[in-house]
Every structure is written in structure tokens, then in C-alpha cells.
Amino acid sequence: MLFFGVLSIFLLTASAEYCYSDVENACSTMPKNDGQVANCNARYGAIETLKADLQAYANANIETSFEFLLMSTHFGNYEVHRDGFKGLYRKLSDQSWADAIDLIKYIAKRGGTMDLNQLPHFKKPVKQSKILQLTEINSLAKALDSEKQLANEALRIHAEAQHHPKQDAGIAHYIEEHFMESLSERVRDLAGYSNDLKNLLQERDPVSVFLFDEYLQKVL
């Protein structure tokens, strides 16, 4: 009985897909499958299953980066001239762009490739697409919603990696280390800015927005 158990394990091991087996076959006198070494790659764990989610999340960060860049341009023009808001949204744009680049590098590190056609897994409200019509308080609300969407998507991917049959702790750790803390800080800051500006506007002081913009310039 023990012999059959050992034999079964040996057969399973021998039939498994390994780089060593591919190389041994390719170097033999009669190679099979045209001597290809398909398993000699950096892919392991659940990367094949979660690759589409990571690609979509990278594209979501790229899309958000361009939205923040457009918002920065809007508040930095000669008509609006809010340098504090301009600097805030330029900083958020740079952060999302850097996150996207880092994520693309991680996908490549795990043996995958980037697909720029993989659409983000969440949609933004139609009203939020009219960036050039946003007021200061509306822009903060939009920015907060965007960062919350990125944070929730990061949590979803983290949970998928943890509960996957292969339990890919590598992907879960990467998402936690590179996104969770940073997004938590951004969400907290934007929530604070939104409430502070709302309270100032309730005073109906015509210079309240100007003062808040001056404050942003100092804290950024």
C-alpha cells in the first residue's frame, strides 16, 4: 500500500509542469513541442488569476491621475487662480501616477505583462466627469470619492489574494504595504479639508475660500 502511495506521488511530480522538465526536453535529441520552455517564467502563486485585477487597478490609478491633473490645471488658470487647490491636486495626481508605475513594475516582477485595455472595476458618477464646472468644495468631494474608490478596490484585491486557494501572501503584502497606509492618509486629509471648507462656507464670509486656499499652500 505504501509502495502505491509513493508511486502516485512520483507520477504526479513527474507529470507536473516545471522549468527543469521543459529545459530537459528542449535539450534532448528528440525535443517535444518544438523545444519550448513555457514554464521558465517568474509566474507563481495566484498571479495568473489576479493579474487582470492588478492591471485594472493600475489603469484606475492612471485614470485618476489624469483627472487630478485636469483639476489642478482648472484651479491654476488665470480666471480661478487657486494655487492651494492647484498644488493639492497636482500632488494627488503625482501620487496616483507613481502608484500606477509601481504596480506595473510589480506585475512584471511576478511574470505578467501590463494590459492598458483592462478597464477599472468601478465607474465614476456622470456628474463628476464635468471637472471644469467644479467649485472648490465640489472638487474636494470628488477627490475624496476618487480616493475612497481606490482604497476600497485595494481592499478587495487584498481580500481576493488572501482567500484565493493558493493564498498569495505576496500580492496581499504588496497591496497592504504600497497602498493601504498611503490611501488612508489621503482619504483622511481630504475628508478633513472637505469638512473644514464646508464649515467656513457656512459663515458666509466672502474671503473664506481665499483663506482656505492660502492654508492649503502652507500645509502642502
Rank of each mutant, 00 (worst) to 15 (best):
155 L>A: 03
139 S>L: 04
124 K>I: 12
164 H>L: 14
138 N>A: 02
115 D>V: 11
181 E>L: 14
149 Q>P: 01
142 K>H: 05
156 R>F: 09
140 L>Y: 05
193 Y>V: 14
166 K>F: 02
152 N>H: 10
146 S>V: 05
188 R>T: 15
142 K>R: 04
121 H>S: 13
172 A>H: 01
192 G>P: 00
140 L>E: 00
166 K>D: 13
174 Y>S: 04
131 I>Y: 03
186 R>H: 14
134 L>A: 10
170 G>M: 08
156 R>Y: 08
185 E>M: 07
123 K>Q: 07
198 K>D: 11
176 E>D: 15
129 S>L: 10
134 L>D: 08
113 T>G: 15
155 L>C: 00
130 K>H: 15
133 Q>C: 03
192 G>L: 13
153 E>W: 05
114 M>W: 10
125 P>N: 04
136 E>G: 04
147 E>M: 06
140 L>Q: 02
196 D>Y: 03
134 L>K: 06
190 L>T: 09
128 Q>D: 13
138 N>E: 12
115 D>P: 13
200 L>Q: 08
116 L>H: 06
197 L>R: 10
133 Q>V: 01
159 A>M: 09
139 S>P: 03
153 E>D: 08
153 E>F: 08
128 Q>R: 08
121 H>C: 07
128 Q>S: 07
186 R>I: 05
111 G>A: 11
136 E>S: 07
136 E>K: 04
114 M>V: 11
191 A>V: 00
191 A>I: 04
180 M>F: 12
184 S>E: 08
120 P>M: 11
155 L>K: 05
146 S>L: 13
153 E>R: 14
166 K>R: 13
114 M>L: 12
185 E>W: 02
115 D>S: 15
160 E>C: 02
186 R>F: 02
122 F>D: 05
122 F>C: 08
145 D>G: 03
169 A>L: 03
198 K>P: 02
177 E>L: 00
166 K>H: 03
149 Q>D: 07
194 S>V: 04
200 L>F: 12
189 D>R: 11
189 D>Q: 10
139 S>M: 03
121 H>L: 14
133 Q>F: 08
175 I>S: 00
171 I>C: 13
136 E>T: 07
167 Q>K: 15
138 N>V: 00
130 K>C: 02
188 R>V: 02
136 E>Y: 08
169 A>P: 00
124 K>A: 05
136 E>N: 08
157 I>Q: 03
166 K>T: 05
190 L>E: 09
148 K>E: 09
175 I>H: 00
120 P>Q: 07
182 S>M: 12
171 I>P: 12
173 H>T: 15
155 L>E: 04
169 A>T: 01
195 N>E: 08
125 P>I: 10
168 D>H: 14
